[in-house]
């Protein structure tokens, strides 16, 4: 079972819808350790993505191109800290599936591995530093494991979402070592990282849409 272009394209609409629903939740997460605007920034960025994708020619079927257009629009127009991070991640993800009109299980793993690599490269992030990387990295590990074990796509995706959720939740007890919240030292502990939370919403909406389950469920 392969994932067609249209599903991936739809995933970006679902991401935007989910972010719009969770805008205030993300702002609230950002309040104690940031400046309560993460929901605004990330929603605005994915609105730009939607606009860019809507401008693609109707005959476009290259998933790599789709992801790269998404990435480029976030880099150019996203702003804040998350612009370069999400933007680089989608650009890198697009590169590894360039020319593909549908995604196999292998492609899906490669895509997210490159996505994680983009975040690490741009933000110099490592696991355990209380960032979006803490959501994405465990998800990639889960995907790789599922692939090696030959699991069905639907199980693979469900487990990946679960791993991402646990990853996001794990940021609560972490000491922030990156970005603005790192300046709080010990006081960053006890709060879920807003970037990790928005990443979870992004990957969950994306992955659920691939499974034709809709996505965009409220947190």
């Amino acid at each position: 079972m392969a994932i067609p272009f249209e599903r991936v394209r739809l995933a970006f609409s679902q991401i935007l819808e989910a972010l719009e629903k969770n805008r205030q939740y993300l702002n609230d997460l950002d309040a104690p350790i940031g400046d309560s605007d993460h929901g605004e920034s990330v929603t605005n960025a994915f609105r730009k993505v939607k606009e860019a994708i809507d401008k693609l020619p109707p005959e476009e079927r290259d998933i790599g191109k789709l992801l790269q257009e998404a990435g480029k629009s976030i880099i150019f127009s996203g702003g804040a800290a998350m612009g370069p991070l999400y933007g680089t991640a989608f650009m890198d993800a697009g590169k590894v599936v360039s020319g593909k009109t549908e995604l196999t299980r292998e492609d899906l793993v490669a895509l997210w591995e490159a996505f994680a690599g983009g975040i690490a490269r741009r933000g110099q992030a490592k696991v355990g530093e209380k960032t979006m990387y803490d959501t994405i990295y465990p998800m990639v590990e889960a995907l790789k494991k599922s692939l090696a074990e030959g699991k069905d796509l639907s199980i693979m995706i469900e487990e990946a979402i679960e791993a991402a959720r646990r990853g996001m939740e794990s940021t609560k007890d972490m000491l922030s070592l990156r970005g603005r919240s790192s300046r709080l030292g010990e006081r960053s502990i006890g709060h879920i990282d807003p970037g990790a939370a928005s990443s979870f919403i992004v990957v969950r909406s994306f992955m659920e849409t691939l499974l034709e389950k809709g996505g965009g469920v409220r947190e």
């Binding site: 605007d37 605004e40 605005n44 150019f76 127009s77 702003g79 804040a80 612009g83």
Partner: peptide, 12 residues
């Protein structure tokens, strides 16, 4: 010029 308390994007 960025949004309130948010860095301006690359293009700008």
């Amino acid at each position: 010029v960025g949004d309130i308390f948010a860095a301006p994007p690359v293009q700008r």
